[in-house]
Design a protein around this nucleic acid. Structure first.
Lengths: 310, 310
DNA sequence: CTGTTAGCGCTTTCAG
DNA sequence: CTGAAAGCGCTAACAG
């Protein structure tokens, strides 16, 4: 492990100068800086993060708080970008409420990270305050916006000539999102907004409800990938063809929808993870300590479950 | 941030004694240790890992190398256990070959972690050497063993009276696993071992192949969850009932099989992650620096895709 | 059993 | 622009 003074000796300067040069601090002649940088690289010098941190310098570590490792792609993207930038990733999984409460109660990050990345974690009042107390920048990657996803899905279906579109929402959501649909010129029938559990079974039950109505929609948008699958399975079992008789779009469930071939709205998670890191590190370097949230951009992936209205 | 000397002062002893007491080192009277521990807790003292590490003590950090964040459950379990034990998790995602090569080339872990946890990463010769060079214990959590999974699935089906069982394997695997089946008293027909891509489409094609044969098996075991889903979908479309006509067991694909209700072999990932951490930390405390691999234990989850042979 | 004395490898004044 | 010196908070010999 070559240390900073090793480099200093080899470059014929003092350790202080090496420190300044490598960090890009002002007050070092360009010639010296170039030389030091070159020598350091040649010697494969890597800074001792502990020492830097202890001495009050940068800590070269970012805390990543994930609500769940399901959002794995964003994590993978962020990790890659951080590693490349020479930062450690301190991972914290805030899955259940207990783990989350415990984390914010202990706040084990004091003086240990240069920034915080939030993955699908929306802090409440107190949590935000705890994070702010760290005095480091916080960037949070939010989940994809449902309204936006819905807009994308509806536009796709309308483009295919659909007018009769049912909307499947998870139980608990009390909005209807009618405005989003009517804004695109759709006539919304109340019986075509159905709530169900976000499961395959839930989706299957939705079909029963839909079949009871006087008219079957030509397309259904499901906010849950699993429910979308349920709709798909039950429709096929009932002898309806997808997409010939009914088109299906899911607003979520990348893996599942991809496996089965359902048209779906997806997020660019990996790239977004990388972007978020760039943003965060820029804030770190600027010495800021504010908080931003960056919504996940989404796009539609057309597969085999949507077609022109027959 | 209260420091060790703060605690020392409050407890009326020297910093060295606090250090010894808190780490459980021998050479401290029980009375002193109790008192110091009590004072430390009261003052909510948390050790400065940087300083400890720099001074040559413990680093309170474990590197977790994951081949992919898909194996998220094990990661979540491990993270929880480590956090509880007061250890940081330094996450490295070794997804693609490039990232992996880059990691082992740089080996950014020197003097920075107390141990390494490998998640579905099987190091080759050189990689193992690089890890050994760290001088810390390495525990690796392997994927579930296919042979074992197959045994579980076969036993379940045999218990239901099945004798005619087809086996769907991923392309590239050149084994037939006949012994595993024959060992359980099954007569294996060569046309009932089918290779396909681990996708829904692959599974659908398998059914075509199977239907061409002179006799349809009463059950199929698929090593891929997605292929199992393909088999399921195609059979239903062809008018066969599952499980009335054909039973299906998947050897993988927790999420997918759970969503659709397929009987499957699953691993106890979360618990195993916690176990692995216990194991690793025990080695850390014992000052060892060896390497072990712990295969993921598996069990069968019976759902709706298997039934008694008709 | 306990305290004292040195550093660990950096960053940061403070001088030159 | 550069160097010398002090110190971050711990652990590790040494003495008592």
């Amino acid at each position: 492990m070559t240390s900073m003074s090793d480099v200093a000796r080899a470059a014929g300067v003092s350790a202080a100068t090496v420190s300044r040069a490598l960090r890009g601090e002002p007050g070092v002649s360009e010639a010296t800086r170039r030389n030091v940088t070159e020598v350091a690289k040649r010697m494969r010098y890597a800074i001792a993060r502990d020492a830097s941190s202890l001495a009050g310098g940068r800590r070269y570590a970012i805390a990543v708080l994930a609500s769940d490792v399901g959002r794995g792609e964003v994590l993978a993207g962020a990790e890659g970008a951080l590693r490349q930038a020479g930062y450690d990733v301190l991972l914290y999984v805030l899955g259940d409420a207990a783990a989350r409460a415990g984390f914010f109660e202990e706040m084990p990050l004091g003086r240990r990270v240069d920034g915080v990345l939030l993955l699908s974690v929306t802090p409440d009042e107190g949590e935000a305050q705890a994070l702010a107390g760290l005095g480091v920048p916080v960037v949070s990657v939010a989940d994809g916006d449902l309204t936006e996803a819905l807009r994308l899905a509806a536009a796709h279906l309308i483009g295919l000539g659909h007018h009769d579109i049912a909307l499947v929402l998870p139980e608990g959501v009390d909005e209807t999102y009618d405005e989003v649909l009517t804004a695109q010129g759709l006539a919304v029938r109340p019986e075509w907004t159905v709530w169900c559990s976000p499961t395959v079974i839930g989706g299957e039950q939705v079909v029963d409800v839909l079949l009871d109505a006087e008219r079957l929609p030509t397309a259904v948008i499901s906010s849950s990938g699993e429910a979308a699958l349920g709709v798909f399975l039950r429709l096929r079992r009932d002898g309806r063809e997808v997409p010939a008789d009914v088109s299906i779009v899911s607003l979520e469930g990348k893996e599942l929808t991809r496996a089965v071939g359902l048209t779906a709205v997806e997020g660019a998670e990996r790239e977004h993870g990388e972007r978020a890191v760039e943003d965060l590190l820029a804030r770190v370097r600027a010495g800021r300590s504010d908080a931003v949230v960056r919504p996940l951009p989404q796009h539609l992936v057309v597969r085999d479950s949507t077609g022109a209205v027959g």
